[in-house]
Design a binder for these strands. Structure first.
Lengths: 144, 144
DNA sequence: ATTTCTTTATCACATAATATGATATTGACA
DNA sequence: TGTCAATATCATATTATGTGATAAAGAAAT
């Protein structure tokens, strides 16, 4: 499988039935149906009356729930954790919108500039990030 | 869909039925069955008596044939071209095994060293490649 | 221990999806 | 026109899935 093929995979509007979804995730069809009734996972139907279809996000979600169940979590606990994750992810998306610029430094760090400090307008908030750590600091704001 | 998820997609032992294969490729189920009878494409069965399944390589092949048909090729012609491609790909794989080293030059070229010239042992075969061109040349062999 | 609630399995029945062989249709080409 | 390649259509059988009901198994609470 070539790299360009893998790339096109993302754009692929592909879905599988409940049998294949079960095979892939290791969850039984009964489990999947029950989890969906409990709104823990979801699927869709191409047509009225057709069978359930699971696309990649649906499958990813299924895998998450399945692995949490395997780790001993109860369903409601798993639901809580997933909701919290979703919540945090939403927050991070909000923060990501603030991003003004990214600079790569010579010592392998990325400096993410999130713009003006609200309570100290002469400074910007900058995150220094590399593979193993991330720290916030304030730096004098450049005049523009 | 995150990049790590996309990465794991390759390892995913995922397959679809003939309906989804048809939807994705645009070929009708009848076409797919006929092409398979003609050994142009292939599928597999998980169990004796089960339905056809199509995995990623199967789908890629289907897309290739479908696009060639759309371009006006006859089926046998498409088969010939695909066989030739396969043949060339096999040859390239053989050649790739010879690759000794890759160096990036300052002017944006990659130099692929394929090792000793059989009939001129003091020299190596080197391919200079960039985005738009590729040329072979011989360079004095380094003493090791 | 008993009860209650959650989670999963099982069963029965209905419908959707697919397999397969036969036949018809369409299109290309000599 | 006749022949062959390619596809569609149809009938019939089997497999896959949906759904509701019920049973069974586990977990948690009392």
């Amino acid at each position: 499988m070539g790299p360009d093929f893998t790339k096109r995979l993302k754009d692929l509007d592909l879905s599988v039935g409940i049998g294949e979804a079960s095979r892939i995730t290791g969850a039984t069809a009964t489990q999947i149906r029950y989890w969906e009734k409990k709104s823990l996972v979801s699927s869709f139907r191409r047509e009225e009356g057709g069978n359930k279809r699971f696309n990649f996000p649906n499958l990813a979600r299924l895998m998450l729930v399945k692995s949490m169940i395997d780790e001993g979590y109860t369903l409601t606990k798993a639901a809580d954790i997933l909701a919290k994750h979703r919540h945090e992810a939403d927050h991070l998306k909000m923060i990501a919108k603030l991003l003004v610029s990214v600079d790569e430094t010579a010592d392998g760090y990325s400096e993410l500039n999130f713009g003006q400090l609200q309570n100290d307008p002469d400074f910007d908030v900058v995150a220094k990030v590399n593979d193993t750590s991330a720290t916030f600091c304030k730096v004098p704001r450049k005049q523009s």
